[in-house]
Design a binder for these strands. Structure first.
Lengths: 177, 177
DNA sequence: CTCCTATTTCTGTCTATACTGAAATTACTG
DNA sequence: CAGTAATTTCAGTATAGACAGAAATAGGAG
């Protein structure tokens, strides 16, 4: 994996750009893409060379990827260095990432909205409009969070089946509503 | 809307922070929060004063919000200034945002993955592993995009009903699988 | 046409974050 | 318990993006 093929490079670079749009830094996303493609775990030095970034940068980025729970350290017999490998199952991968984003971003927002709605209800009710808007927002977040938890609880293959149903959803809904 | 209440300020500031985590800049998100809460359309000067940011910054941010399709210009009789109002229906709001994010981020990735898979199939097939990984990723994106399109096509109230079904999803799945 | 108000564009500054290279730490090996 | 390899931490630097203020533009109203 010293040098990348044309296709590999294309994917790694694109993934890096995508990362920035989702609030992940470019190098972190590139390393993830590289590990995702790699048939075997890589050690930090290999990553450094392949992506031409500083060794320290790789170290920091790997820590972050481990924090997300999508990269883990493995060891190779007779080699003292840490090797890193990405979770390979794409469905599992996105499930982990979504869980983490929910925890970091949605849950705090839910908590804040609850506080805001509570506070604005206790107040002299002079500001009915604000309360109403916030309540609508809160309802949306609660509904979506609840729904996600449902999907989340399904075993992966059930979730895949569910999503792949596609066209039948609306029909089922017609029956159930 | 010159000065914000405690609750309003709390929400606006939080929404600003959230924005940064989703790749939207803080001011843009704050302005959106402000317009979302405001019972009446606001003109740029009001926003400038309420949020204490430069007039030019407000102008740019409003353009970006219009680009997302969640804020539009309206006019008030006898007032030459542009007034701005946010889309108020939360479900509609997120639908628009998701559509836009899909268009900007998912669709290009889909296209790229198709290219990569095609290219790596034409090649001497020396790199079966890369092709396999990319194909798995592509399958995931295609499935999710197709699924989203299904939901997307539903009228809003059907989509809401669907999501609110919650607990019954798994039961239905059991019947349908 | 000229004045006036509203809005946008532009340019330079500032700030937050990414990144590097070096130093420090950790943890193995003989 | 050296000596060495691997990793992490740290401190300074570079860069991208956000932002302010000024200048330019647009678009009435008289």
């Amino acid at each position: 994996m010293a040098a990348l093929t044309h296709v590999q490079e294309k994917f790694v670079l694109h993934w890096g750009e995508m990362g920035t749009k989702w609030g992940v830094n470019r190098t972190v996303a590139q390393i993830h893409a590289l590990l995702f493609l790699s048939p075997k775990p890589l050690h930090a030095e290999e990553i450094t060379e392949t992506l031409s970034v500083a060794r320290s940068n790789v170290s920091t980025s790997l820590k972050e990827l481990q924090g997300w729970g999508i990269v883990k350290v493995v060891h190779v017999m007779g080699d003292r260095r840490d090797h890193y490998e990405s979770m390979k199952d794409v469905w599992e991968l996105f499930r982990v990432v979504l869980d983490e984003r929910k925890r970091r971003e949605i849950d705090p927002t839910l908590a804040l909205l609850r506080e805001c709605v509570a506070e604005s209800s206790q107040g002299k009710s002079e500001d009915a409009h604000t309360r109403e808007r916030l309540a609508a927002m809160l309802d949306f977040f609660e509904t979506m969070a609840g729904w996600y938890d449902q999907i989340r609880r399904m075993p992966t293959d059930a979730a895949i089946k569910f999503v792949k149903m596609g066209g039948r959803i609306q029909k089922l809904l017609g029956l159930a509503s």
